[in-house]
Design a protein around this nucleic acid. Structure first.
Lengths: 233, 233
DNA sequence: CGCGGATAAAAAGTCAGACTTATACGTCAC
DNA sequence: GTGACGTATAAGTCTGACTTTTTATCCGCG
């Protein structure tokens, strides 16, 4: 589940990264490499590597004679999967989930339209398989099984679009879907209407109906927006 | 212009990063830290920091007893601004430009719709100012001036949307616009229709007409797609 | 001939300490 | 008050030794 796991350096990162993204240090705060090394009981070499990684994520900035300065959230690389995970695990999780759901609502319809044009026969088959899996798990509190197929479904759509930028959002969408199922309200079985929409979407892609695929996906994502009480246009 | 500039570590990164994203080492290639350190004439400490950063971008993977393995492009963090710049500077620039333009066509209309709801009075003013600047530079080969206001315009839209994920794409869009003006065909003055659309968009946002703002932006981005010969739905 | 376990080698990982360099800040002269 | 100068500070760099993990090889046994 955790990503960096390996290495002493990764363990420090897994503590310090979430602290920063959680806002434990207000923007402009100054950390010193030596102090951090002492706190985590690692050598400066390791600490410097950690700082370099945080710097490449634009979470901090390292300057001579000053120290390691924490940057304002506006500067962060919010598309870095690591940063996304850290923020989703932190306090402003709801806020983050909203941002990402709005992003989904912009991306996925277009991706679905492209998928209808570019999907391979194999991808079409995967898609219908996932949709069937969703149907099969849509009743009787089989939330985990439903989630599994839901994540796979959207990942296939994004990949089949043929656009690498879209494909790379597969993990993010999966994270959002998982978050919705696990942490937020979702005690009951999923909305039957949503299930039907997914089945129809798989159908539309198979039949190369780009316009319909886009329209159906827009309905799906608007449902997701409404769940989070985000006003739909 | 260049980003990492500072530090010995940054200079090595500015050479090795572009090499990898350009595909100089096929996926699965193995690099050794010591050899790299020798090649760039830096100490292993510095080289290790470089490798750590590349690893956080998912360009490479470092494993004990094996070395530093180059990962397939599918794994790369393609939203990392650094990676985007490296790829735009490399050989598959056209491909990259297409991916990003498709991304724009998905994001910007939604962002414009949100901007119409959320933009502050100040942002509305900036928007009209940018649009006027575009008009003023739309004739007589004043491409640089036009580009400047065009970049600013889209940046304001993305920021005014109020969604941090959208806002963070400001740099990317700017890069795409700059790329179009500088490297690709754009000898003549910009399309008058596009200029008009921008003026109308600023108007729509000012008047809080979200639907119209979205529709106008869709027209703008479809124009961008057509310029690159990407089929529009 | 093939298989499994001991063994060795290779590369990253870690650490400690000394040295260099840039730079913010205070001081002093004007 | 302003400007030049010196100093303290924290990051940056280098070196060399040691540890750890993982892979490949080799050998003996079935």
């Amino acid at each position: 589940m955790s990503t960096t796991g390996r290495g002493l350096h990764g363990r420090v990162l897994d503590t310090l990264g979430p602290e920063i993204t959680a806002g434990a240090y207000p923007p402009g705060s100054v950390l010193r490499t030596d102090e951090l090394a002492q706190r985590f009981d690692v050598s400066r070499s390791v600490m410097r590597e950690v700082v370099r990684v945080l710097e490449s994520m634009h979470l901090v900035e390292s300057r001579r004679r000053v120290g390691v300065t924490v940057l304002p959230a506006r500067e962060w690389n919010v598309y870095d999967p690591q940063v996304i995970r850290w923020r989703l695990a932190g306090a402003d999780r709801p806020r983050q989930l909203r941002s990402l759901t709005v992003l989904r609502s912009a991306i996925e319809p277009v991706a679905a339209g492209l998928a209808a044009r570019n999907a391979t026969a194999e991808q079409c088959a995967e898609l219908t398989e996932c949709a069937l899996g969703m149907v099969a798990n849509s009743r009787g509190h089989r939330l985990e099984g439903y989630l599994f197929h839901d994540m796979a479904f959207h990942r296939v759509i994004l990949t089949a679009s043929g656009n690498e930028m879209f494909a790379r959002l597969g993990d993010v969408v999966a994270e959002v879907l998982a978050g919705r199922t696990h942490h937020d309200v979702m005690f009951e079985d999923p909305d039957p209407a949503a299930v039907t929409l997914h089945v129809q979407l798989a159908e539309a892609v198979r039949e190369r109906d780009a316009a319909r695929a886009e329209r159906l996906t827009r309905e799906i994502t608007e449902g997701a927006l409404q769940e989070l009480d985000i006003l739909a246009p």
